[in-house]
């Protein structure tokens, strides 16, 4: 398989959305003051505490570098990330407490997560033409084996329901927009919300690059990372598909607009080292959203002598 075939394969495997539209909008995001973020967090904690009869009304707030840390009784805590407005609530459980009684059918677990989602009212408060859709169920399990080789059946520790924010029909890619983690008996273990709030302001209406153009950019980036490899890149790549949509940067990064991108997931298989990459490329000629760049190592105070 040479580069051409890989590009074609990527471009023809758009995952998870209807056909890529020829045009879409670049949308301004709401920028919040710290006071506004903290007020949102207070409402969020009040509502969650009430829904679950948890003592979230007793709080100790500390403003740290790039976040506000809120300590609550019995080891519970919440965090607000200033740059994005993302919120994380962690209840008091230790990881191997409050386990599920048994491994459950996926359908039952999804139902449990959806019931919690409704109880937490995660679907409310979104903008017009926006939605939140269930994306994926994750399970955290544990197992063990003795010195003599005796095994035990896995136990189910937690389930996580991951949800995706949509603006119109376009998903906002990045971390799960909402992640609900449940312990046994459906108790709330943690809740993370990473939804960038949109405004009504359309910054621009843009033409979307064809998937082939994005796939070529991905191939060029990957080829650079693997330059001078003794095995041609195209022979070892396993593309997992190309996704189109908006992008939400990681939670410690400020962001002014939602702009369309393509995201490629590429695995390298059958080699000594397993490799796994995700690439994001703008879906527009003009760059509206600077993407995180790779850092270099901190200068070391030590000098290595062999």
């Amino acid at each position: 398989m040479d580069g051409t075939k890989l590009i074609e394969q990527l471009a023809s495997n758009i995952v998870g959305v209807p056909p890529v539209p020829p045009r879409t909008e670049v949308i301004a995001l709401r920028q919040h003051s710290l006071d506004e973020l903290e007020e949102r967090a207070r409402r969020f904690l009040d509502a969650t505490g009430e829904a679950y009869s948890l003592p979230f009304n007793h709080r100790d707030w500390t403003i740290q570098n790039n976040r506000t840390f809120i300590r609550m009784p019995f080891g519970a805590r919440a965090i607000i990330y200033h740059a994005s407005g993302a919120m994380k609530l962690v209840n008091r459980f230790k990881p191997m407490e409050s386990l599920f009684n048994k491994l459950e059918e996926r359908g039952n677990l999804i139902e449990l997560v959806e019931k919690t989602a409704n109880q937490l009212k995660i679907y409310e408060g979104l903008g017009q033409n926006e939605s939140l859709r269930f994306e994926r169920l994750w399970q955290i399990k544990a197992a063990a084996v003795s010195r003599q080789g005796q095994t035990v059946d896995p136990v189910l520790c937690r389930v996580v329901g991951a949800y995706r924010h949509f603006v119109g029909e376009l998903p906002v890619w990045g971390a799960a927009s909402v992640a609900i983690k449940l312990a046994g008996e459906g108790e709330l273990d943690s809740l993370t919300i990473q939804i960038r709030q949109t405004t009504d302001k359309v910054v621009d209406r843009v033409e979307i690059l064809r998937p082939e153009q994005a796939a070529r950019q991905v191939f060029l980036q990957l080829s650079h990372l693997m330059r001078d490899s003794k095995v041609p890149v195209s022979e070892i790549i396993k593309p997992r598909g190309l996704r189109f949509g908006y992008l939400s940067l990681p939670k410690r990064k400020a962001q002014r607009v939602l702009a369309p991108v393509y995201i490629a997931t590429i695995d390298i298989e059958g080699q000594e080292e397993a490799q796994a990459y995700q690439f994001v490329v703008p879906a527009t000629e003009k760059t509206y959203l600077p993407l995180p760049a790779g850092s270099e190592a901190l200068p070391s105070p030590q000098r290595r002598v062999g």
Binding site: L222, H224, L225, M226, R227, D228, S229, K230, V231, I236, I268, Q271, E272, E273, Q275, Y277, P292, G294, S295, E296, A297, L298
Partner: peptide
Amino acid sequence: ARAAGVSTAGDLTYTFN
């Protein structure tokens, strides 16, 4: 490692992030 033929491992981007 690539030049020595030891591995096909590509460079990474976000290691130091």
